[in-house]
Write a protein that binds this DNA or RNA. Sequence first.
DNA 1: CCTAGTTACGTACAGCGTACGCAGTGCGCT
DNA 2: AGCGCACTGCGTACGCTGTACGTAACTAGG
Lengths: 236, 236
Amino acid sequence: MAVRGAVPEVIWARPERTGRGPKPAYTRDDIAAAAVRIADAEGLDAVSMRRVAAELGCGTMSLYNYVPRKEDLYELMMDAVSAEHEPWEPSGDWRADLFRVAHATRSLMHRHPWVPRLMSPVYGFSPHALRYLEHCLACLDPLDASYGTKIELIAMLNGVVTTYVRNELDTAERVRALPWSEDEENAMRIAYLGGQIASGAYPRMAAAFREDPGPIDLEAVFQRALERVVDGFAPR
Amino acid sequence: MAVRGAVPEVIWARPERTGRGPKPAYTRDDIAAAAVRIADAEGLDAVSMRRVAAELGCGTMSLYNYVPRKEDLYELMMDAVSAEHEPWEPSGDWRADLFRVAHATRSLMHRHPWVPRLMSPVYGFSPHALRYLEHCLACLDPLDASYGTKIELIAMLNGVVTTYVRNELDTAERVRALPWSEDEENAMRIAYLGGQIASGAYPRMAAAFREDPGPIDLEAVFQRALERVVDGFAPR
DNA sequence: CCTAGTTACGTACAGCGTACGCAGTGCGCT
DNA sequence: AGCGCACTGCGTACGCTGTACGTAACTAGG
């Protein structure tokens, strides 16, 4: 009896090729790459089984031979982008190495703006995600702490990076679903916010808006956030 | 000419009642409460325009008189749960007050497990979200820092709380969409992870798993994370 | 060689967001 | 007072989604 449809099994435990029957026309990498290409160009919501199949040039239902559920397609996508994280030799300065990893993750998310939306611990155990985690732990070898603490630190740093970049990209990613332009979206939100502030109901918010911050350097704000998190864990 | 369908306007700027025509049968609060009830009981994906209309006892398209787009329904839901955040008189100990806010947010998310998935800066400017933000700033009055820094701190703390609770609830929320049970899901992931670790390709991960952490106290891990973030901002 | 298991793919179904048309209602203006 | 218009309520319909299922072609193991 052939295994049809979804079955309780991680996609990575499924062999790509079993030996019997015709040779598969595509690899998992082909499929993941096609899905990533669509998500990069048209947003995550454009990634449908039909659309990916069309991108590959096969029938919709053929895709289900490779990917039992849409959820598994997301898992392939997240693993594919994790593969962009090429591990390097740790320098011995764990703090600097951690910052380097964080900046690499941020730029990865800028290349693939849908990643923050998909970020979840359940995708943290794909082959390339494990390689990434192992590399982070290698960077932390010089730090004298338990693995439990190190993993807490990595999780928190990843969380902060994700949150931060999500805030950077959120409107940009969601604007695709809007029936109007990003400018109109921003204009209307600012107009409403201005009205609320002017109402006097939120005096501290009003004061915050009056405070002149000077030019905002997103890169600097990000770096500052990273340093604060790391300092909270291991004060210098 | 009547305003039909979506128009570039925040839902909060739309008056609930304009004076002309028959009296609306429902208030925004009714609608938000119905949607929240469904999301709490059956998960966020069960919240569809049809389902909410059915819950209210009206035709699907009648809902569009109140809520121009589904996105606005989410905005109503997020404001409705923000309203559960009743501001209190700050104690003068901003650190303790911040922790109290964070714990309240965490327990709110446990009551409404779909909140982390919806958490986004764009919902941060609804009436009750503004009230919440103003209250956080009030708690930070004793802290000698610019409003810019204070807002960075609040944003980071909220981000950490969201990330943390999302990790707690993620599988539980997503298990509803799975064609198998949560136990099977966990079992298969652990089985795969165990195999990978045993392969020897991830020595530090393997060491981390051999390390006996003793009983894990989620509450303590959470509190520790909060303290680390706050310490990173304002070392004692 | 045979046959079981696999690939490929068309059809079909239930559900989604929502555009549009029309009937009925009651406020505001003349 | 009464006309007209803005509004509410709602049924229908369109294009989209994930995916269950049936069928035909193919190929490797016994």
